[in-house]
């Protein structure tokens, strides 16, 4: 029997019960290892129970995984089931893809797309990052630094506004 996730031979046969509904999974050893900590849906039980099967190293790695833009930790996402910003999808990509595949059965969007190309999206994401940096600067009482960041934010906002009007 072939692994449900990759071309290898399935050696693990898992019955997963979600919302009272059993689903069967046939996985190779490698995919089964991944499945251990990615099979959870966002409403799934709390993280510690899910992580029981993980090694110290794996846990530590997960602990360190943080979105650089909004500073959400992957573990926090796991506990709440909500991501912190659009960049989390990039920051947690390797962890999210199997989860998305589990939920949707696909990992490539098909359907409606914005008509307007998001040329300015990089700068908008910079805005998110700068706002979060300004907040931590204020909380650390680094007011000069906060003022610098504020000026950068205002500059970016002016640019973006100018373009959307132009």
């Amino acid at each position: 029997m072939k692994c449900d996730r990759c071309p290898k031979v399935a050696t693990f046969h898992i019955t997963d019960i979600e919302k009272g509904k059993p689903t069967e999974l046939h996985l190779c050893e490698e995919c089964a290892q991944k499945f251990k900590y990615t099979s959870l849906s966002p409403q799934a039980p709390s993280a510690p129970a899910q992580e029981a099967g993980m090694s110290e190293g794996e846990l530590e790695q997960l602990e360190r995984l943080v979105c650089p833009t909004c500073k959400l930790g992957f573990r926090e996402f796991r506990a709440q089931g909500r991501l912190g910003c659009a960049d989390c999808y990039t920051a947690f990509r390797d962890e999210l893809l199997p989860l998305l595949e589990n939920i949707h059965g696909e990992v490539q969007h098909v359907g409606k797309a914005p008509r307007r190309a998001p040329q300015d999206s990089r700068r908008r994401q910079d805005l998110i990052r700068l706002r979060s940096e300004m907040k931590s600067a204020i909380s650390e009482e680094l007011y000069e630094r906060a003022a610098e960041i504020r000026d950068q934010i205002q500059q970016l906002e002016r640019e973006l506004q100018g373009e959307s009007q132009g």
Partner: peptide
């Protein structure tokens, strides 16, 4: 309505995962 909103409010979107939502259960469309 979505088209009209998109003209004045840029939405989070990726080629790969579509419209990006707070919960991955809504991502894509």
């Amino acid at each position: 309505l979505d088209d009209q909103l998109e003209d004045c409010l840029p939405f989070s979107y990726s080629q790969e995962l579509g419209y990006l939502t707070a919960c991955p259960t809504n991502a894509g469309t």
